[in-house]
Write a protein that binds this DNA or RNA. Structure first.
Length: 221
DNA sequence: GCGACAG
DNA sequence: ATCTTGTCGC
């Protein structure tokens, strides 16, 4: 799929933060998703090794989890890892990978956050603007906000709150495992993000899309 | 000033 | 993220 270039990625941290504050106003997270129409879900992940970033995007079909398409992209890692600026590190390779997609996913699932970010624009929200498609942030550990540990039963959740605002949820995706942190990315609200994540989750803690993307990226690296 | 800090 | 084998628990 062809996506429009919104801006340059090689920005000094200070400018990157200023850009995030500007783009945050364009992110839409109050829109319910009609899950009955979500059939193709893309999992997105990047694995970094020896200065090279290996991206993988895997599209699965719901509700059977069959793999529809897998695309890869590899680039030298030009940006350092700075908490809060992950999109500037992984954005370039991801754009290259997205351009290779032959299918148009109904939804994208990211390894990381969307709205649950200091400036409310984590990688899922940021890439959502480039994709102009619904996106969800699905992180393994918290970036910001407070939460009470949800019951250890699959499907249970607790709110992730930051500065008095609900920014996401801690969701138990597998019995007796640590929760995943879900947040709306773009063109999707939190409730839909949680429901969609459950529809994409099988017998593992990680939802199938990102779990398979992680596997594909590691294998290709 | 001090601690926290996605991948 | 990555460095790394076996091992405890549901």
């Amino acid at each position: 799929m062809k996506l429009h270039s919104l801006h340059s990625w090689d920005l000094p941290p200070k400018e990157a933060i200023a850009l995030q504050k500007k783009l945050a106003g364009q992110v839409i997270i109050d829109r319910p998703l009609d899950l009955s129409k979500v059939k193709l879900v893309a999992g997105v992940d990047v694995s970094v090794k020896d200065g090279w970033s290996q991206a993988a995007v895997v599209i699965i079909h719901l509700p059977d989890f069959h793999i529809i398409e897998t695309v890869l992209a590899k680039q030298q890692t030009a940006y350092p890892y700075i908490p809060g600026l992950l999109s500037f590190r992984e954005g370039p390779v991801l754009v290259e990978a997205f351009e290779k997609l032959q299918n148009i996913p109904d939804l994208f699932l990211f390894d990381g956050f969307g709205y649950a970010h200091p400036r409310r624009i984590g990688i899922a929200s940021h890439m959502g603007l480039w994709l102009d498609k619904p996106t969800i942030g699905c992180g393994k550990t918290r970036l910001c906000g407070k939460y009470d540990t949800p019951s250890p039963q699959k499907g249970e959740s607790a709110e992730l709150v930051d500065k008095g605002e609900t920014i996401g949820a801690a969701l138990t995706t597998r019995d007796h495992c640590n929760p995943m942190f879900i947040s709306a990315g773009h063109l999707c609200d939190l409730d839909s993000a949680i429901a969609a994540t459950m529809l994409c989750t099988g017998r593992y803690r990680l939802p199938e899309p990102t779990r398979l993307a992680h596997k594909a990226a590691s294998l290709a690296r």
